[in-house]
Design a protein around this nucleic acid. Structure first.
Lengths: 143, 143
DNA sequence: TATTGTTATACTCTATAACTATA
DNA sequence: TATAGTTATAGAGTATAACAATA
């Protein structure tokens, strides 16, 4: 076990760990990664389709299918807006909110465990630096 | 912009940033994320299918398809092992090695840029802590 | 019997291009 | 004309289950 990895290698492997955790928690909640991202984003508040494409980094047509499947599963509903009748607003159903909550709590537990072995001071520094690094990243998750 | 994010929210957004970067670099190199992961893993050395399923976190049948497509594109070759004729060894072709190199270099550049704005001391601490956290993660990337 | 890998099948995810409705 | 969203289509990725070959 090498004592020090390079920046890239560290980031790639950390990304892998996070992705794996996200995926495993999703599986435990019977959610795909894409579905979990959608629900977590909507947990904050409803969004229009156009906003969601930006937040999730998807093409409009990809999002249509994702929202279709989430609707079929009873997690979200589409509604229209009076002021712009082209727009479609996506909102969590109570079931969707519950699924998002369950996923959120389990993910929190699993991700915090990744840092659990660090000394408290080092962990705090790490989290603080991380906050700086991701300051401009889309808000696809909320504490 | 909140000054401090929680551990989970920070990790999720960092994972998102890394994944986005990985995906964008892949697109620039005409590689899907899965293909890039395969090539980067094989850049270290050839691996048997069974090893790759562990490193990449895939089912055997999923890996079969991934290696099929990488073979069709001329990036890898399958060969057999004398000592265990059930095993299949996957090796990069020169083209595959070149694609892996190009991807590696661009990804390194893009990921290092994520930390470029940090003060040197803070960046060093961050990378060091990250190394500890990912110490046991699969070696899907090498500096 | 257990392990290695493939095949068959089905579903999710994603993109591009063409289309409809509204602004 | 431009924007919001959907539909049609195609390909990649993934999993489960059944299978063949080898250990």
């Amino acid at each position: 076990m090498k004592s020090t990895l390079g920046t890239t290698s560290g980031l790639v492997r950390l990304g892998y760990l996070i992705q794996e955790t996200y995926s495993e928690v999703g599986r435990a909640c019977d959610l795909t990664v894409a579905q979990a991202q959608l629900l977590c984003t909507l947990a904050d508040r409803p969004h229009r389709m156009a906003e969601l494409t930006g937040l999730l980094g998807l093409e409009r047509s990809s999002l249509t299918g994702l929202v279709d499947r989430a609707t079929q599963r009873g997690f979200v509903v589409r509604s229209s807006q009076p002021d712009d009748r082209r727009a479609v607003v996506v909102t969590l159903t109570p079931e969707g909110a519950k699924a998002a909550d369950t996923f959120h709590d389990l993910l929190t537990e699993r991700l915090e465990a990744l840092l659990a072995d660090l000394p408290a001071a080092e962990r705090d520094r790490f989290v603080k630096t991380m906050s700086r690094v991701v300051a401009d990243a889309p808000a696809v998750f909320h504490d």
